[in-house]
Simulated assay, not measured.
Amino acid sequence: MSSKQAVWAVVPAAGIGSRMQAEIPKQYLLIDDKPVLQLTLERLASHPAIEGIVIALAENDQWWPSLSLSLSCELLIAKGGKDRSDSVSNALKLLQQHIEHNPWVLVHDAARPCLRHADIDAMLDTLADDAVGGILGIPVSDTVKRVDDNNMIQETVCRQGLWRAATPQMFRLAPLSEALISAAEKSLAVTDEASAIELAGYQPRMVEGHSDNIKITVPQDLALAALYLRQQAGGN
């Protein structure tokens, strides 16, 4: 993207991450003595195109005050919602009250601390003039099976054209806000921002990212993320 147009990041961080089987939300678990959420925010804030971050926190979040943050961009705090889409919607509403223009917004998972600046650059460059926006993803390389309720294999699914959706997901502030509100009003379940944009009748673009942009979901992911961060720091 020429001129490095400024963008805002939105981080929904109100979830509890039950699959981690931990006593605290997964975004506050430690990787090399730093909370996952802090690593994620620092990675976003240190990118030169990020003008500010809006984070959506649970109302009873007792761990947030313990973070030692010194970010190089503006930080706004929105109220988290029942679902991810509610948290993102609340964050977008706060941002609309805070600024007058309609910037690109990068919605990024709180539990993806290994996002590379190169992947943000790829999104900004690829989507700069896109009418809709798009998301970061990885082509599916494994053989994919569909099973029934008893885990009996029903078929092998052709993986051609299949991608694993990741984040950031990059859309203009106003259309994304409208799409999320519309989906909520129609009681349509959306698992990511692209789903809402698709339901609004648009086609987002897929941008290929690095496979080390993992989401912390199960306990062993913490060690894997620590390894990836060390590799990235070493220039690998």
Rank of each mutant, 00 (worst) to 15 (best):
Q5K: 09
V7F: 01
A9M: 10
A14P: 14
G15D: 12
I16E: 14
S18T: 11
Q21G: 00
E23M: 12
L29V: 06
D33P: 02
L37R: 05
T40E: 12
L41I: 09
E42N: 14
S46Y: 10
S46R: 15
P48Y: 04
P48L: 07
A49S: 14
L57N: 08
A58C: 05
A58K: 13
E59I: 00
Q62C: 10
Q62P: 01
L71S: 05
L76T: 12
I77P: 02
I77Y: 02
I77K: 09
I77L: 12
K79E: 04
K79M: 04
S89C: 13
N90M: 01
L92F: 00
L92R: 04
L95W: 01
Q96A: 08
Q96W: 00
Q97D: 12
H98C: 10
H98K: 15
I99F: 00
E100C: 13
H101Y: 04
W104A: 01
V105F: 00
V107M: 08
H108T: 02
H108Y: 07
R112A: 13
P113S: 02
C114R: 14
L115K: 13
R116N: 09
A118H: 09
I120M: 12
A122W: 03
T126N: 09
T126F: 06
L127S: 06
A128S: 13
A128L: 12
D129W: 02
G133I: 01
G137E: 08
V140S: 10
D142N: 15
V147H: 07
Q154V: 08
T156P: 01
T156A: 04
C158P: 04
R159M: 01
Q160C: 02
Q160H: 05
G161Q: 08
L162P: 04
T167E: 10
Q169M: 09
A174C: 06
A174I: 15
E178P: 01
A179C: 03
A179W: 00
L180G: 00
S182C: 12
K186T: 03
A189D: 04
T191W: 08
S195A: 13
S195T: 00
A196L: 08
R205K: 14
M206E: 11
Q220K: 15
L222K: 11
L224S: 11
A225L: 12
L227F: 12
L227M: 11
L227I: 05
A233M: 11
G235M: 11
G235W: 07
N236M: 13
